[in-house]
Design a binder for these strands. Structure first.
Lengths: 213, 213, 213, 213
DNA sequence: TATGAATGAGCATTCATTCAT
DNA sequence: TATGAATGAATGCTCATTCAT
């Protein structure tokens, strides 16, 4: 009897965990599909039906996992931020601030290479603060600012090893621009592998400029 | 009689030119209105009715001057490109390629300051080649490339006055990134006057980098 | 010239009044159609598309005249209330309160005979205070109460000509019940002409009861 | 062995009757829950999920006991009719037809007081023969008619003790209207206890009318 | 048999475009 | 040619029902 009881409990647990796992799997599948479609078509032009089709589920199913089209979009952004944020946190161990800066660039490039489609979602809001309205970009703008703040802090920590006749913010903005330019070129080139290799080039131009020494 | 005939012809001409002028005035009014609304609301979220209201005409009237919502949008872009292109052509007179480069930056910044609302239209397509689909961005991407090509040419013309261990395209891309960064910061700051003043800063960072000499 | 000017003004006026008239015609046509369909199908089961079809217009057209499905429903109720209210006001001239009461019954019966379909709309909210929730019934419940209040007042004015061992409100409630019963029977009988003829019967039963004198 | 056999048969019986009892318990629980929710929200606005939640079962379970949402609704009505019918049958013992009539009113009032929520379900179809369409109201309309027929019969049985210048049906209809009015007032007053006390008032007004003797 | 997630038909509303005046 | 009302296709979301576990 006790075994049967234990068994029943076990089954319940199993069922629950199976269900939870299944939920996670569905959520991920939907988000992956949505990343593809949003990335390809843009938020407004994406039809929920298309996302469902890409995910291989019925439209109604989406609403068992997300409350609305916007919720899906937000969840993708949040998820991406979380992942990138986690990767960036690992940089804290690096002693030298300029090395840390270089690795930050490398991490971002690596992240984009891994999550190409996700990136174009970011493009829809991150690069264009004017177009995309309040609802959706709040969190993301904060994230952009957070990265810029980190770059600024690294530069400040570098002290006299970088120029002091421009404020750290200005230098950070410049590096941000160079990173974006590399990304843009990479996207235009069709997202071919090798973005990470641009790290050295970007850092070289950032640190030493276009003039020969 | 001949005078009367001449008169009649003149009248016809007048009438025709008056009509043409009137058409041009309407077109301009509609485009101005559309720039405001598109800039404020984004392409997809803009309603034709709002553009018409802003322009002070009936919705049907728009379709006497433009064939569709997209046509209006495209016309705005073409118009802007034409104007900026004309301003950039004036640079040809400048001898020194690096001075020419600096003035190119200044011209772009000046243009943006003058056409703030127009700029955010550009944002909707120019900065994000991924999102905005084929129909609309063809012309604009070409324009972007044209500017980059010009920058590249200027840099090539500068010969050994710039580093030769990176291809001119790479340097051009870097300058493009710095320009974009400055623009982005300007927009985030609320498009306050003074963007042109960033020309020196951008060129300084581009040419000499972040490392003290 | 002045004549031409006057003419132009006239035309404008004409156009405006024609337009206003046209608007009114459309509104009425849509409301009539909606009365039919709501009456036949009930609020929830009525599809906007059906109303539009019945009215002979496109679905979008409805929204040029009403802001929502509920707005159409409300407008029908308001309109009906207004008409019935106007008819009831004419009773004020009648001296004898009991005659006035009888004529009130006759007016209500006559109104229903004229607006049969409209009646079943009333049924959807008026008779069932429990089911139909807050949004829609506020105005109508108030109207019901207003009529009951009027009946109550007439009875009070009748003084000792009616029984004083029950409060006027109770008597009014009873008369209301008799009216409703007659209406119900009339509806069940297929809304055949002759409802007004029930006035005397209802008043007779109300005043003298079921017991022979 | 035979005992074991008998035992086994007994067990089967037990098991079956246990199962049947269990089925009945579930059915009742679901119907009770549905009465609450339907009464609160109305048929169309009630979600099966809400009924299931109120009943404390899964949505799928409902469909093991009822074939559809409408089936649940119908079952509630049938059940209520059955119960009320049973109570009304007890009146048969009463000799005097007018006393029987009075007790019929009392039984109905008592039934409503006991089954308040059920009542508002009745309201959704019983009082409004126009709105609620054929599928659902057939049974109920029949029941309404059955009650009216009973009232009519009682009145006919009363012979000259009631007025003969109106057909019994008309008198029955009048009493039905008075009953409804009392119910309506009771509902509007929030279903406070004491509805049964209205029996005397209703009968008094029905029998003697509003005119003092 | 209970479960609860998947299903997908159904529907109110929007808005670019057309067209009669 | 200007007008602005009519048009109707398009789409996000709901929820009764089914079904695999």
């Amino acid at each position: 009897m006790s075994s049967s009881h234990a068994n029943s409990q076990e089954k319940k647990k199993d069922r629950r965990s199976v269900r939870e796992e299944s939920r996670a799997v569905y959520r991920q599948a939907i988000m992956q599909a949505a990343i593809q479609i949003f990335g390809r078509t843009g938020f407004r032009d994406t039809k929920i039906a298309d996302v469902a089709a890409e995910a291989g589920v019925a439209t109604g199913t989406l609403y068992n996992y997300f409350s609305s089209k916007e919720d899906i979009f937000q969840s993708i952004l949040d998820d991406g931020r979380e992942r990138l944020g986690a990767e960036l946190e690992l940089l804290a161990n690096i002693e030298d601030p300029l090395v840390r800066l270089r690795e930050l660039v490398r991490v971002m490039f690596g992240f984009l290479e891994q999550h190409g489609a996700l990136f174009s979602i970011y493009m829809q809001i991150g690069v264009n603060p004017v177009t995309f309205k309040c609802e959706a970009d709040a969190g993301d703008e904060a994230f952009r600012q957070a990265i810029l703040a980190q770059i600024t802090a690294f530069l400040a920590e570098a002290g006299a090893r970088v120029r002091l006749d421009h404020p750290s913010q200005t230098l950070a903005m410049a590096l941000g621009g160079l990173i974006n330019a590399a990304i843009l070129a990479w996207v235009e080139g069709g997202c071919q592998p090798g973005l990470s290799d641009q790290t050295e080039v970007i850092m070289d131009l950032f640190l030493y400029g276009a003039t020969p020494r």
